[in-house]
Amino acid sequence: MKQKAFRFLPYSMVILLIGFSLTSGCKVGTEKEDEAPELELDMSQLSQDMFEDIGEVKKIFYSLPSPIETAMIIRSAGATYNQNLLNSVDNASNYTTNKSMALNLGVYTCDLSFASLYDQTEASIDYMNAAKKMADGLGILDAISDETIEELEENINNRDVIMEIISDTFMNSSSFLHENERASVAAIVLVGGWMEGLFLATQIVDLDSLENNTLVDRIMDQKLSLDIVLKLLDESKDNEDVQLILADVEDLKITFDKVELRSSQIETSFDEETEVTTIKSKTSSNLTPEVFTELKGKIETIRNKYIS
């Protein structure tokens, strides 16, 4: 039947159809060939290679995005503010163990940064007080003093000053913990903030528009930080609290590993006028809605466990 229909087509049409299919097939092929070498680098593999090549140096730092950076990343990606997603300040009195206070110092600092970036003045003061409660409970001396709260209230309409205050208090906590050889607590604080950022971002994303979504891209980028989280926690793996958190992060890694991130070669360009270097590259991922839903579910479970 098909042959019959084909027989009745004018010769010119057949030639046109063959020509079109050949040229269009070549085009797709060419595009793929053009794109393939561009995005040829498997970022997870590169990340592993980077760690395998760690030299014999005096000191190695694994740096996670701080709660401030996490909140800024979410805001820059165009997320909207939803206070209902933040951990209620009323929960602060429930946290009595070192682990829960450390996790929620990170969580509340992330929520505080998030609220401040969206000029939520009352919420900013409430979350600073909640973070103070956690820092005091952990015995972090003077990280957040009464004067800090007063300074925050006096400058509540000046976002830059508020961010400076938050940065100052977080650095006080972080340096106090390192000075007093409590690196495990410092690591737990960072993971708490990082997990809160992931929770907020995954909750805000509209599941119907995963493609070309900047916020989704930033969530997927956290796969790059995952190895750093694991390395950071691994340094304090003798600590029981760290072991429990390590298990959560390893479980999250199973889902993140279902996504492949690819990158092009990196090039740099320097702007003489601004004296800013731009690191140029392109990345892509093969994220599917199913994997995103799985990831979102896991993050929600872990985060709700941390704040309960």
């Binding site: 891209d217 790059l224 930080s225 190895d227 990196i266 004296e275 270097t277 731009t278 392109k282």
Partner: peptide
Amino acid sequence: DFKLESSQQ
């Protein structure tokens, strides 16, 4: 000072 077109480790 720098910025990135895509996130990198």
